[in-house]
Design a protein around this nucleic acid. Structure first.
Lengths: 202, 202
DNA sequence: GTCTATACAGCGATAGAC
DNA sequence: GTCTATCGCTGTATAGAC
């Protein structure tokens, strides 16, 4: 589970990030408070300010850690997937895992609240999507070269379709908690890119 | 423009809804206040409470009006489109118009904040997506019967793909204000459903 | 229908003791 | 590293005058 912290680090800073991350992914940046985090950890708001100067700094740290973890998961997909379609299936599964824990993608959530975020957080969110989009474009172009993927027009357009499709399917599926519905929608989306014979029967 | 109010009704209640709607679509339910709406209208917060008992009631009214307007736009597409692919293109254009005004779909925004919403608003959001999904399924099945659309598996899966794809592409495109990018991604998504010869070159 | 005035809870943040 | 205490601000909401 790329999205879950192992039992490795148990320092206060890590525990703060873990609690705040869950609250942010479930309720949004404007939907949780320092008090929520502190109460859950059994400490006071003032103690939180020792670790993170303010909510904005906490937010920046959350984006940075999430982006690093996601980036590592993408690199792992590159290293272990047999071909481009398998890479894309693995990509969809990253989102499915998050949704299975009743959460929204952290940066997808922040994208909705974008106009209310501190500038540094806005930059982090933008960078996350640019990085994801660039990675997707590379996968798509590789697949087209390999002959395992087929699509017309710029790879950037199809990358935007896949990225947006994952975020949006997640956003809507979370309302009913329907992870299987998400997987089915994601599979349909990717089937439109595949050259495999089962693309119409998958 | 289905998403824009004409100069017809200029009553205070309508003007309140117009201002609050724009704030909600831009900043989210937890991202604007009664004071924001009142200030922009040049009245006090207390006056707002005369028209809407509380923020929750205002939110319910916003969802109801938006859902009605959207529903009417869908009915109009049914009545005026030549075939299923044209209907889907019109559907995508509804979202493009909203995005062109630098807004997120009202219910897509509320989907992100879902867990923080009053129960009555949650029901409204759920109903909006169920209605949209049912409409999309009907369009897809009609297109498959007509031979203008091709997809495998339950229509519900492809409907979820289209619905989620629109919401997500919107969510991400709004960060950079790239309406053309949205249109391109939406076109790629719909191309995967079409039986038309230009689906690989559109 | 809109105002002033006010109540009260919650927020993020800081100072200073331990 | 965590506490208590407190500040200033903003949030929603209400009472009562006009």
């Amino acid at each position: 589970m790329w999205s879950e912290r192992g039992p490795g680090t148990t320092g206060t800073t890590t525990r703060i990030l873990d609690v705040a991350e869950r609250l942010l992914q479930a309720r949004g940046y404007n939907g949780f408070s320092y008090a929520d985090v502190a109460t859950e950890l059994g400490i006071t708001r003032a103690a939180l300010h020792y670790h993170y100067r303010g909510k904005a700094e906490l937010g920046e740290a959350l984006i940075a850690r999430y982006a690093d973890r996601f980036s590592a998961a993408l690199a792992d997909l590159d290293a272990t997937s047999s071909d481009a379609p398998a890479t894309l299936e693995g990509y969809a599964e990253l989102y499915a895992e998050v949704l299975g824990r009743h959460r929204m993608c952290l940066c997808g959530m922040l994208a909705a609240e974008y106009l209310t975020l501190p500038p540094a957080m806005q930059r982090g969110v933008t960078a996350f999507f640019e990085h994801s989009s660039a990675w997707l474009q590379a996968v798509l172009e590789r697949g087209r070269r390999e002959g395992t993927l087929a699509f017309s027009g710029p790879a950037a357009d199809s990358a935007a379709m896949v990225l947006g499709g994952m975020e949006g399917a997640m956003l809507v599926s979370r309302l009913s908690g329907d992870v299987d519905g998400f997987r089915a929608a994601a599979a349909r989306l990717l089937a439109g890119l595949s050259t495999a014979a089962d693309q119409m029967t998958a």
